[in-house]
Write a protein that binds this DNA or RNA. Structure first.
Lengths: 205, 205
DNA sequence: TGTATTAGAGTACATTTGTTCCTTGATTAA
DNA sequence: TTAATCAAGGAACAAATGTACTCTAATACA
């Protein structure tokens, strides 16, 4: 049991609530009252209705009256991480403004064919992409839609794959590192295959 | 429409699919066939049944026969982004090794009370945390479990909140920036409240 | 053109399902 | 003890709902 919002539940109510929660997790839809009846070992739907009413009164569940299997758990629905505000990185400036937006990282997961790469090396360090970071990439079909300055993962057949800034000038492709220690790579259009462009950086500490 | 897994849908099927998807998003449960009928402007449930069968055959939906409102979208349930391998950031070294692991960003969402902050400023730039990045923080109860070198968000009452490296030496707390332009802040233990420690960095491009 | 296929309308039916009413038995409070 | 309260059983009802069938019109195809 997770939610004890003020009021407590009887054992029967608690058992029913947990069973419903598990059922919804497994089947993605609400059980019917008679299914609950069977699961609770009862022989009449009436006691279930009573317990459901109590669960509703205490704010644990809700449903559309008369409609089948419309029961919903009034749970803490987490579809994102709360963004509490901004933080100073350069002196002590402001406090949490308690902005109640949500960081929905999952949205990037909806995009099809996104893939991740582990970064090796420090050539993109000035772009704040460090060794060991995960870069999330979106596949590319052609290089024509690429804008100068985009960070791409490019494959030069026979050589390998690398993460670099993309530039195109006068029919030539330039792959530039974000680190003065590395020289730009100059290539012809047909010497390079672009696998993806950078969507996001993910670093676990 | 997102999913076009090989087979295409007719306009009617597509319209129905999208309506169902939106309904489920709004109400958290499946609509009934007659609701779909009304929404599609039809006067008989039969055409809906036909379209549902097609959607089922093509792998878009599924349901439990005979049971009300048990329809389920057979969506691409992504609980991770495929990690295709590592990439060189410092010369052309290796190619995708096609490692088939999954980057499960969602795992960090399971932890309770994780929150996000938007970074303002460049004081952590050498730690590769740039202006505009999102930092995901885990709440802290006490400072005793903190190790030197951890990145924390700390609040000095009356001043504000800041993101810094944490160090403790001889009864004193030192908050250090990852940028030589900023001087360390020296504080007593009771002058500072730690709100969280850094779990991850998220940057959308 | 004629035929086959498909979508939709209309109808009907059986099951599922939420809801209500009444009764019984157990537990509790006065 | 007695009355009150509550959970449960039993039965029944009406609405919601999935499903099957026939018929018609439109469309595609040869």
């Amino acid at each position: 049991m997770i939610k004890y919002s003020g009021e407590n539940l009887t054992e029967a109510q608690n058992e029913l609530y947990e069973w419903i929660r598990d059922y919804v997790r497994d089947f993605q839809h609400s059980p019917s009252i008679r299914q609950m009846m069977n699961a609770m070992g009862l022989k009449s739907p009436a006691p279930i209705q009573s317990r459901l009413k109590h669960l509703q009164d205490k704010g644990f569940i809700s449903w559309q009256e008369g409609k089948a299997r419309t029961l919903k758990l009034v749970d803490e629905i987490i579809d994102g991480i709360p963004i509490k505000g901004s933080i100073a990185a350069g002196g002590l400036i402001e406090t949490f403004s308690d902005v109640q937006e949500n960081l929905d990282v999952t949205e990037i997961f909806k995009k099809k064919d996104v893939f991740a790469l582990t970064v090796n090396g420090d050539s993109m360090i000035d772009a704040c992409i460090a060794d060991g970071d995960m870069v999330l990439m979106e596949p590319l079909r052609d290089s024509y839609s690429l804008k100068n300055g985009t960070i791409v993962s490019a494959m030069v057949p026979g050589l390998g794959t690398t993460l670099k800034y993309f530039f195109k000038r006068g029919g030539k492709i330039y792959l530039e590192a974000a680190n003065p220690a590395y020289d730009p790579i100059e290539l012809n259009l047909d010497e390079v295959i672009f696998q993806g462009k950078l969507l996001a950086v993910w670093r676990k500490v």
